[in-house]
Amino acid sequence: MEVGLLYSRIRPDEKLLLTELRERGHEVHKVDVREATFGLDAPPEPLGQCDVVLDRCMATSRSRYAGRFADHYDVPVVNSPETAKLCSDKVETTLALSEAGIPTPETTVAFTTESALEAIEAFGYPCVLKPVVGSWGRLMAKLESRSAAEAVLEHKETLGHYEHSVFYVQQFVDKPGRDLRVLTVDGEPVAAMSRSSDHWLTNAAAGAETESFELDSEVERLAREASEAVGGGLLGVDLMELGGEGGDEYTVHEVNHTVEFKALNAAVDVDVATTVIDWLEAKVADSEVGTDATPAEVQP
């Protein structure tokens, strides 16, 4: 098959996918979205000749629009623009998870520093203030006091893009020094790992230690349901354990739509890229790409 890969930076994750695709004899067309332009009538070549396009844009804005254009041209794209829209914005993700009945941290959104401070005070300290768009644990604030909250809110309002005046306030979940990442393909778990750190942020990108995690039925169920809630595809579902390590209750705090898996690949016995391309081949063969990616909240 002919596979397009939308990118602006080739990370180790993209290299693993490219290697796997080429070794299987697929023709790969890398499309650098910094150079491509997207008009209304025809896709930029060679996008139009692709059987499927993988959106691997590292920049969320580019991912959102490039994927939407691929869909506009009727070129099947993984992940779907609907999924990208829901996953790339924390407010959208939280609403999708909540509407699907999936446990997710208690969250309040406010639009002014005054109302945000009220929301923060209502949660009590510590609580968490997150950017609505962002990744790798950046610009996350654990607020321990009113004075810290006032300072962070003022900085966000003064220095930030307008999105920083969408104040996403969340309960602080006292996780057991780790969170969990499950990589799924259309809800099917491929592999899972824990990410541990002494820091309250446990992102692998921030240096957390990763270890293979054996899925239990509850994590598997939540990963499947979280995937379905955002429309399926190739996803990284993040969960936290409630009640300590080994507890049987979880909360889903994030779903990533351009999921990185280098760290996961190193932590588990599964060859993630192989499994992902197996899935992609089957999906294209079944001509299902883009047709079953309806977010749960708009299903009849």
Partner: peptide, 22 residues
């Protein structure tokens, strides 16, 4: 950033942008 492989060519990589991630 690798901007060419045959011949090999390098450019300064773009700075980290706020919306980068996964």
């Amino acid at each position: 950033e690798v901007v060419g492989v045959d011949p090999a060519e390098l450019a300064e990589a773009p700075d980290l942008a706020e919306d980068w991630g996964e």
